[in-house]
Structure formats: C-alpha cells, structure tokens
C-alpha cells in the first residue's frame, strides 16, 4: 500500500535577500507561510515544484515542505519549518521582526 500523501507547500529563499518565501496559489512568492498554497495532491505538488524551480531569477532552493491546514492558512508541521517561518530564537530578527501583518512579494 502506498503511503498517503501528506499536504505540502512549496518554499524557497529569495534570491537577493535570502529571506524565506512561499509559493501562493496565484503564482506569487509570499513572505508568509499562511499565504502558501496548500498542496493536497502529489502530482500537483510535483508540477508546482517544477514551476518554482524554473524561477531562478527570483528564488533559490525551492523544495516541498510538509504543512497542515490552520485557521489562517497553512501552518508548518516540522519545527525547522516553524523556525523558517518565524526567524531565529536569539534575536527578534527575520520574519518575526517584520511582523506577521506585513504582506510583501518577492
């Protein structure tokens, strides 16, 4: 029996700033995890990943990461993805400094 596909998002780092970005359903790169497109189908995930990998002028290191649905949008599953979505724990730098309300695209 094949394993059930766990929902995923496509994430990468912005080419210039290195900041973590997420691919949205309408083909933007958002700085916010909650705005990511939650992918529930494996084949669709592969298509979205290929689409992301082709955008070398905008992002670096596109990959799929596990996520789960939440009240405001997809939430990270693994602690590594939670840290990527928030920033380091020793200083209020990275995304947590920008504030979660800010919206911005690459």
């Amino acid at each position: 029996m094949s394993r059930r596909f766990t929902p995923k998002i496509v994430t990468a780092n912005a080419l210039v700033e290195g900041d973590v970005v997420y691919l949205t359903a309408d083909d933007r790169w958002s700085r916010h995890h909650a705005e990511a497109e939650l992918i529930e189908d494996e084949a669709h995930g592969q298509i979205r990943l290929i689409h992301a990998e082709a955008q070398q002028a905008l992002v670096v290191g596109a990959c799929l990461a596990e996520a789960r649905p939440g009240p405001n949008g997809p939430e990270p599953v693994h602690f590594r993805d939670a840290f990527r979505a928030r920033g380091p724990s020793n200083y209020p730098h990275g995304k947590q400094a920008a504030g979660i309300r800010e919206t911005g695209n690459v």
Binding site: G18, D19, V20, G61, P88, H93
Partner: peptide, 15 residues
C-alpha cells in the same frame, strides 16, 4: 560553487 569558494552560504533565513 562560486559563492561557496568565496565564503557565501545560504542558511535558513538569509545568506
């Protein structure tokens, strides 16, 4: 490989 030869890594949140 060119950036790594010059000490530039990409980490979790930034270069």
């Amino acid at each position: 490989p060119l950036r790594l030869m010059n000490g530039l890594y990409l980490q979790l949140h930034a270069y």
